[in-house]
């Protein structure tokens, strides 16, 4: 085994995190589903004319929430930037599951790597800036008066994840193929570093990155981040 004990524990924690996340979210959804629904519809007027319009509005309100733009422009801008960058960055991580051959076949492997470097790097910076705004805002009045520790814990965990990810992206001498091997070793339930990672100091950055992800994912179902799913239900009530 070429893994140091810390990295090994972090890798094992991935399994715990996945289990807690799936179980926690399932539990949350079951609790929601089993609770009685208030019979009357208390949405906001004007209400959608039909089911199609209602569906459209739920999607629009959940993804774009245009009305928010009018009342708090900067929060809307940073929220949009953060969530969009998060989505793109997360999508990029699927290269670790399987190389995007459908892209490299068209533009070539080198270009895909460049795209990953530039795109991923940009997303990482955007997220970091947005998180900086989130944190700065939490310390400003009146937001500090309504903030609770949960809010700061989540920003710190996210900042850790993104910061370490950016570090790997900008300073690491390790390449996607090596990370892919690490990721797949975990998926095969045989966590290991390949030669390149074992030789590089970047493995520490990687393990800390994964540790923060684990903690974040474990906390996720018990935090306000269940808005990932809840937003659709809550916005549905608005249109009923």
């Amino acid at each position: 085994m070429n893994m140091d004990p810390f990295s090994f524990i972090v890798a094992i924690l991935v399994y715990v995190a996945v289990i807690v996340f799936v179980a926690g979210m399932t539990f949350k959804i079951i609790v929601w589903a089993k609770s009685p629904r208030m019979k009357i519809n208390l949405g906001i007027y004007p209400k959608p004319r039909n089911g199609f319009v209602r569906f459209f509005r739920i999607i629009r309100d959940s993804f774009i929430f245009p009305q928010t733009l009018e009342v708090d422009r900067w929060m809307w801008v940073f929220a949009m930037l953060f969530h969009a960058a998060l989505f793109v960055a997360l999508f990029g991580h699927f290269r670790l599951v399987r190389e995007f051959t459908f892209v490299s076949n068209v533009i070539g492997q080198d270009n895909l790597n460049t795209l990953g470097a530039v795109g991923g790097g940009t997303m990482g910076i955007i997220m970091l800036i947005a998180l900086g705004y989130y944190l700065f805002r939490r310390f400003a009045s009146p937001y500090k008066d309504i903030s609770v520790p949960e809010d700061f814990i989540l920003i710190i965990l996210l900042a850790g994840i993104v910061g370490l990810g950016d570090h790997m992206r900008f300073f690491g001498a390790v390449h996607t193929e090596d990370y892919r091997e690490y990721f797949q070793s975990i998926m095969r339930f045989k966590p290991a570093f390949n030669e390149a990672l074992a030789q590089s100091q970047t493995r520490w950055v990687l393990s800390w990155h994964v540790l923060f992800v684990n903690l974040f994912v474990i906390y996720f179902p018990f935090s306000k981040l269940v808005h990932l799913i809840g937003t659709f239900f809550a916005n549905k009530v608005r249109s009923e």
Partner: peptide
């Protein structure tokens, strides 16, 4: 839903 999703963004 309301108690679980609020992000305290205070928009």
């Amino acid at each position: 839903y309301y108690l679980d999703v609020c992000a305290r963004c205070a928009i």
